[in-house]
Design a protein around this nucleic acid. Structure first.
Lengths: 190, 190
DNA sequence: CTGTACATGTAAGTAGTTACATGATTGG
DNA sequence: CCAATCATGTAACTACTTACATGTACAG
């Protein structure tokens, strides 16, 4: 407590998100981060060890000491109720233009399982809008190519355009996949 | 001097790279950064103001005071010979697995104009390999989907796959475009 | 008369990094 | 026997951020 969930850093939310899948030790968490969200967010091991006690102090996670025989003893962290709530409200909070860039959208969608499906849909819509605006900006630049802008920058412009278009196509697929899921399990608590 | 070019930060190389296009003031540079390389690298204005005198101190850039009548006077920065050399050798230096991730490849290719075309080709090859490895890792993950990995993470896996494939297609186009340029201007100093 | 663009910087703070320290167990 | 895996942390550092400070000129 004494802390506003909106104040957590992206790294803290990312760790919280990984804990929402299952409980883990710091070491384990570092490996999981490198594997799953490593391509969007890759905190160092030492940073994770700093973040974990902080989350516990705020009541967002709990620790449990686990004694092991052939391995060093370890501290296993589990997300708490208020941690789950904080994560969900972060995932549901739509920022049309996040300072952290695309990675924030990706993380929020990655951890979408803890949030309301409709809110996740809105998040995806926001991401789509973000990429669409970016694509429009690229295409605008492409139209008025300044003569002093060399070949290489034009090639990199193509790179951005190609990725943006691919992302928009993917977003269409993602929208359908999420809709299909909602249809299959309309009200999970009904 | 007294400085190894390999020690410059990515931000410093990025600023140097923008200066390689044309001379600029700090203010101007900040806007240019937001416009052109802003989607790969976006340093704050105050950071640019810190970097510029450092570059001058190392002999990589020169300053010139420009008095203006209707606007505040300004300091205009221009890349020096050794700055151009430092930039070129950074662009040509191939790191198969850069710590800074994809953004480093993009910047190096963006500033490829200052370097040897063959080295730029090698850089593109390295980038292609990087993305190919990443795509292979994604596809591997997709094949052995763990049951506890929720729908959302699978969707984000698709996102990564879509972008990687688009990037590889772009790389093929980029390779041809660079080859065509080399063929058109075989030896610029011959 | 208010806001934006031009123009340059400082000051304070922080999130993150690498390197170091320790130590048991296991596999090649 | 050497390297890797498991396991946790500290210490030192740094690149970068936001907010502040200052001032002119011009457009609406």
């Amino acid at each position: 407590m004494a802390n506003d969930a909106a104040r957590l850093t992206t790294t803290e939310f990312a760790v919280l998100g990984l804990l929402s899948f299952r409980e883990r030790s710091g070491y384990d968490l570092a490996r999981a981060a490198a594997r799953s969200i490593g391509y969007m967010w890759a905190p160092s091991r030492s940073q994770i060890y700093k973040v974990l006690p902080r989350l516990v102090g705020w009541g967002l996670a709990d620790v449990r000491e686990v004694a092991q025989e052939r391995r060093p003893d370890k501290a296993v962290y589990r997300i708490s109720g208020s941690g789950l709530q904080a994560l969900a409200s972060w995932v549901e909070e739509v920022d049309e233009n996040p300072a952290g860039g695309i990675g924030v959208f990706m993380l929020k969608l990655f951890f979408g399982g803890v949030a309301d499906p409709e809110a996740v849909g809105a998040q995806l819509e926001a991401y789509r809008g973000f990429v669409r605006r970016r694509l429009a900006a690229y295409e605008e630049m492409e139209r008025n190519v300044p003569d002093d802008e060399p070949l290489h920058s034009r090639i990199m412009l193509q790179h951005g355009i190609a990725r943006a278009r691919a992302t928009l196509e993917w977003a269409e697929y993602a929208r359908r996949a999420l809709a299909a899921e909602s249809a299959a399990a309309p009200q999970e608590d009904a």
